[in-house]
Nucleic acid binder design. Structure first.
Lengths: 175, 175
DNA sequence: CGGTCTTGGTTCAAGTTTTAAACAAACCTA
DNA sequence: TAGGTTTGTTTAAAACTTGAACCAAGACCG
């Protein structure tokens, strides 16, 4: 089969995408390293924990939402634990699972550094976009996400199989 | 000054952006590592050289278009040179500069692996976008790029100063 | 010219991060 | 209970990045 090369428009879009994501990631990383002393990934860990109920998440779930391997997450959490921003806790109902919990100190760091981070995200991205473009951005990338991680789910979607995520008590037995 | 937090729409867009760029970069890196035995950055080096006149570029220019530090580029080119895909050459007119040149072998590797790469980019991104969305993507990110790298240029744009880029012969003296 | 500043590029050492494979414990299912 | 699966960590190796220091070559300026 003959290759479907990118059209000139697609090439321009692709180049712009590559350059922008590169510059953006650089800018954000630099700012966070400067003001929070950690790379973007670590900050994302804290941010996700902060949003979660009771400020805690199973390692696997966290890895999944961050789209990284468990191994990588183990490393990140170990570092954050060393700095006292995160603590590990055992799941009461599934003794294999461990939870990453945002400590008070972690919360404090987040509260202190979040404004600067948001400011950077604004300055580099959102302040340059019209409201319509914000919508377009979301639309485009939610599609991409669905396409990329849906692959696994798609095949088995005739199996309405539900995994118990998030360390939660087992469902009560039916009488 | 009080923080301007992200609106709910912006938050959704931001999350989608983060997840998508992450998954995309992963998918592309995995495919290239698999089929070309190199990470995305290295492939980009080859691709850029391939597009350049005479398949060669000054290190500094290449680093600039790739948005990476010269140090990082030195590392990449050294690796690629070790594999025979790139060769260094001295600039005849400015003996400080060195050029990265795509070798025949590098060209061959690129020709062999480009179809697979393009296919991945299509499958993960462009095949999911309408033509309008391709345009939106370009528009959004060219704006971001301008904003981020324009910072340096903006301040001095009253100085119509032109640097001689790309190893080229000096302009002939005016009679 | 001679001195100074800037640019281009590399080197080097240190540190960070990523990967992949192997592992152990806990859970599930038949 | 046996056999498979999920969870999470460990480990060692490799890959990568950073930043500072450095040298050489060009540019600038009196």
């Amino acid at each position: 089969m003959t290759t479907r090369w990118l059209t000139p428009e697609e090439q321009r879009a692709w180049r712009a995408y590559l350059a922008a994501t590169h510059l953006l990631e650089d800018a954000i990383d630099r700012q966070l390293q400067q003001d929070a002393g950690m790379p973007h990934l670590f900050y994302s860990v804290l941010a996700n924990l902060s949003d979660a109920p009771e400020r805690r998440l199973r390692m696997t779930d966290l890895a999944e939402t961050l789209k990284i391997t468990r191994s990588r997450l183990t490393y990140a959490v170990t570092r954050l634990e060393r700095d006292g921003l995160v603590r590990r806790e055992d799941c009461r109902w599934d003794k294999r699972s461990s939870l990453a919990v945002l400590t008070d100190e972690g919360t404090a760091v987040l509260e202190r550094t979040a404004p600067g981070h948001v400011e950077t995200v604004r300055a580099t991205l959102f302040d340059r976009l019209t409201p319509e473009q914000v919508g377009q951005l979301e639309e485009i990338f939610t599609g991409v996400v669905r396409g990329l991680q849906g692959d696994a789910t798609e095949a088995g979607d005739d199996v309405p199989w539900r995994r118990r995520s998030s360390c939660a008590p087992p469902p009560p037995a039916e009488p």
